[in-house]
Design a protein around this nucleic acid. Structure first.
Lengths: 351, 351
DNA sequence: CTGTTAGCGCATTCAC
DNA sequence: GTGAATGCGCTAACAG
């Protein structure tokens, strides 16, 4: 029960070598004779040795410079949750010396992204956390990081043909599928459901919302209800335009009973319907942003699907610190976050 | 951005005293002259000093003996999740020397509880984690712990008239309320809904399920549907008896479209209905136990409400360690867990 | 190649 | 009352 924790010194004694040698072996630093290595490895196979991250960190007295690059976010928006998870981790692991730099970019402006990414490789950090948007630019960045041997971790989504140390994402397809199920079972059984997405300004984005849409449509198809789907898009950048087009869409499809908003802008639609006094259409959207929270509270959004952005940020930093301190072989772990269903009642406990 | 972390030595230098003195003040150990105390406090007010839990722990080279007392649980049951959260925490904070003892009791046998609780105070541990069932016995235990100045933390639920260092629970009332909402919105709009609870063998338990029931009924009342509620109970200890009584209940109330099982035994009902080929009644229950997981997978349970038992166990240990190491004034924090809605689609990511 | 040593931030102990 | 010294587990630098 209280099996004594075993330390490097213990291993050294058991293997008949010094602590320094054990350390060299544990960290693959080389400069060890075969005899010593084998002796130590024999001991290691028997005992269950575990590093202590915190002690390791303080004794290597190095400060790690991590750069975080994500879309700019106002407080309360999706990306700011990821950022707060990151700050939270830095706080929690304050014994590890890390200095964090941010390189924000405008997710609607590819040039802003290019220049942010350029600044990163100029700084030559020890590690990078990437919240990606533009596929090609991110791939270029990763290529340079690979060349410079700088480790990186993705949050929110993965970009193909890259070699991250780890990835923290959600299963967007399943999110869409689940959204379909919820919307159908919670809205009136007759009538149609609508998919609303953002108007994209023609970039080849690795679209999260495309995956969600695919999941949603698959659910509908499996239920034999593909013909009940209506579809439209709205503008995130010019919200003024939306009211008219959304209302036209609603008028033209009077049997709509549920709306799936495939990004975190459910509140835009909810506010319009509320303003027009329409309360027999339920809305489900994504992410616990402050605007969406407001709508959950006033009842204009029925549910939100959330993907633990804080946890993504937190764990990204945590994982990166382990990597930096123990320089493990890039395991490329892919962690998929839980999908939380948040409604008015359980909202308070998610904030 | 990279504001240098400030250490005890720094404070000492700034206040013109030695590190030892600063430590004495930080920990209220006394034996400090007024002059020194004031000098240090002046510095402390300016800088933002933070302890490092891990370093503190290793340098005080004490091993804390924590006793955990909860109902016995088979693997996959509710209480075993709490236990695994506890073990997880001990692992994660393995730098802190803690030795953990378990004092399990049978939650259906008050004598087993009495004797378990007696063994605890005999051992004189440094701290206790309590998963309570019997109100009176727990209060007695707490009285003795208070007298012996042994700190304790509650998980799962609180017992009145006790003085825990912290409490980790769920809002059971809201769980019931939310369950009502889900059941009503997901089952056929006409028809009735049933509440099923466990037959209690006459103890005055602080019943979690009573709170849930109250929340559920309040939701129904608010929707003006109190007359749509049917109610029955079943036996957890003698499952054989249930099939007949449940089926009689169903036959007698043919308009039932949804069943709320107010404890973690939803699988018992689900298995019966499934066996009888009844598939037009949806079931919602509580907790991610292995039996319930099986039923979510095969579709016989539609949703589970879960209260993060692992997190409760994990955080209980974490909080207790902070308390033990920093002997803070008993803040009596009450932490309420999120209520997770788990369905077939998001299940894999909660396990 | 290997053992030894100093030092990381902190709590504790022991002389002064 | 107080400062200095010691040790916790670990890494890094250095002398063999």
């Amino acid at each position: 029960m209280v099996r004594q924790k075993i330390k490097i010194k213990d291993i050294a004694k058991m293997a008949g070598v010094s602590a320094g040698t054990v350390d060299r072996i544990l960290h693959n630093r080389g400069n060890v004779s075969r005899a010593s290595r084998e002796a130590v490895e024999r001991v290691l196979a028997e005992v269950n040795y575990k590093f202590n991250l915190h002690i390791s960190a303080i004794s290597c007295r190095k400060t790690f410079r991590i750069t975080v690059t994500t879309p700019i976010a106002s407080p309360g928006e999706y990306w700011s949750s990821i950022q707060s998870g990151i700050e939270h981790a830095i706080e929690e692991y304050s014994d590890i010396n890390i200095s964090c730099n941010y390189a924000y970019y405008n997710q609607y402006d590819i040039y802003s992204c290019k220049s942010a990414f350029n600044s990163i490789t100029d700084q030559v950090p020890d590690a990078v956390i990437i919240g990606p948007t533009f596929v090609h630019e991110t791939q270029e960045l990763c290529k340079r990081l690979d060349a410079a041997n700088i480790p990186y971790i993705f949050v929110d989504s993965v970009i193909p043909d890259t070699h991250p140390v780890a990835t923290f994402t959600t299963d967007h397809y399943t999110c869409g599928f689940l959204l379909g199920k919820l919307l159908l079972s919670m809205s009136a059984k007759e009538g149609s459901v609508a998919i609303l997405g953002a108007q994209r300004t023609g970039n080849e984005r690795a679209s999260t919302s495309l995956e969600r849409r695919r999941g949603f449509r698959d659910y509908m198809a499996r239920s034999g209800l593909t013909d009940r789907i209506r579809e439209a898009s709205f503008s995130v950048l010019n919200p003024e335009e939306n009211e008219k087009s959304i209302m036209e869409f609603i008028q033209a499809n009077r049997d709509i009973r549920g709306i799936a908003v495939m990004n975190s802008r459910g509140y835009i639609i909810a506010d319009i319907l509320r303003k027009k006094g329409i309360d027999d259409i339920i809305i489900i959207s994504f992410d616990l942003t402050s605007n969406n929270i407001r709508c959950i509270k006033n009842g204009s959004i029925t549910a939100l699907l959330c993907q633990r952005p804080e946890l993504q940020g937190f764990n990204a930093i945590k994982e990166m610190m382990q990597h930096l301190i123990y320089k493990q072989e890039g395991k490329g772990n892919h962690y998929t976050m839980p999908i939380d269903i948040v409604m008015q009642e359980n909202l308070p406990y998610y904030k």
